[in-house]
């Protein structure tokens, strides 16, 4: 089918990643989770993970019709 699914996946997770990173950076305290004595800005950290994942999908899609190795 003509549409490469990696485009929408990549775009969506890049967008959500940017949103989370932005929110985590701006909000600071309210994006922070306290567990087991350490505090983590989860929105910022996980937003970065989503951003990397989204970018990898976009890269895969833009490198052309080749499918990932599992195909």
């Amino acid at each position: 089918m003509g549409l490469d699914i990696r485009w929408p996946i990549g775009l969506m997770f890049t967008l959500i990643g940017v949103l989370l990173v932005g929110y985590g950076a701006v909000q600071g305290a309210s994006a922070t989770v306290q567990v087991a004595g350490s505090s983590l800005n989860m929105d910022l950290c996980w937003g970065l993970v989503l951003l990397v994942f989204g970018a990898a999908m976009l890269l895969g899609a833009s490198l052309g019709g080749k499918q990932p190795p599992s195909a």
């Binding site: 929110y23 309210s30 994006a31 567990v35 929105d43 937003g47």
Partner: peptide, 10 residues
């Protein structure tokens, strides 16, 4: 319990 705004939405 664990998700701050943002992660909660996700």
């Amino acid at each position: 319990k664990y998700c701050p705004p943002g992660l909660l939405g996700l």
